[in-house]
């Protein structure tokens, strides 16, 4: 019995000591981590919008974004970017589920006239060197100024990869990734349209 007591005391002491120290460190770093997270969010929101001057991460509405594959409702948060009180664009994040490996989270900005002001890839696990070319600025800028109504020279909707007749580049060896992103962006535009027609 005495032997067991010693073991219990030793292990409890080690755990307690560790927990106390970590508690202190957590309290010390918590604010900085929160600040970093907020800055990161603001940075990604601003990157897809024209210049704004409001506190963009605090000016948002939550809307119903349909249902995901499992039938659970999806909430989409629309952040309003304003300049001198005037709405210049709305930013929100959408998730493409049909990438090559895992979900791709995309931040997209839409102007009040329903054209895209920019897209940014928040997180992705695509193949390095192939699918992850979606991170390149040059590719992402192809979306700028386009909307669901935009057409290619041949009169086909622009927001599709070139292989499917649209105007967005795919990369040789990786069609699945850009196709998934384009599809998600189209979905996003539809969600935005629904939301703006309601209000």
């Amino acid at each position: 019995m005495k032997g067991i007591n010693k073991l219990v005391i030793a292990l409890t002491a080690v755990c307690l000591g560790t927990a106390l120290i970590l508690g202190g460190i957590y309290a010390f770093t918590r604010d900085t981590i929160e600040k970093q997270k907020r800055e990161k969010k603001i940075r990604s929101l601003k990157s897809v919008l024209p210049p704004t001057d409001n506190e963009i991460d605090k000016d948002y509405i939550e809307i119903d974004g349909g249902k995901d594959r499992r039938g659970n409702p999806v909430k989409v948060i629309l952040y309003h970017g304003k300049k001198e009180g005037q709405l210049v664009g709305t930013a929100f994040s959408i998730i493409a589920h049909d990438g090559y490996s895992g979900d791709i989270e995309i931040m997209m900005g839409v102007a009040p006239d329903k054209t895209i002001t920019g897209i940014e890839i928040i997180s992705q696990k695509e193949t390095p060197g192939l699918g992850d070319k979606i991170l390149k600025e040059k590719w992402r800028s192809e979306f700028k100024g386009k909307s669901l109504e935009s057409k290619t020279d041949k009169g086909i909707p622009f927001l599709d990869v070139k292989k499917d007749g649209g105007g967005i580049d795919q990369f040789s060896g990786a069609t699945i990734t850009p196709r998934a992103v384009v599809k998600a962006v189209r979905e996003g535009l539809k969600i935005y349209e629904r939301a703006s027609s309601k209000s």
């Binding site: 292990l11 080690v14 755990c15 560790t18 120290i21 460190i25 770093t29 900085t32 981590i33």
Partner: peptide, 22 residues
């Protein structure tokens, strides 16, 4: 006991990096 100590150091690193090298 070793694992708890190691995990403590790892969490410390984790929090510090999250705060200062995001």
């Amino acid at each position: 006991a070793f694992i708890v100590i190691i995990a403590g150091f790892v969490t410390l690193t984790d929090l510090t990096m999250a705060a200062y090298t995001p």
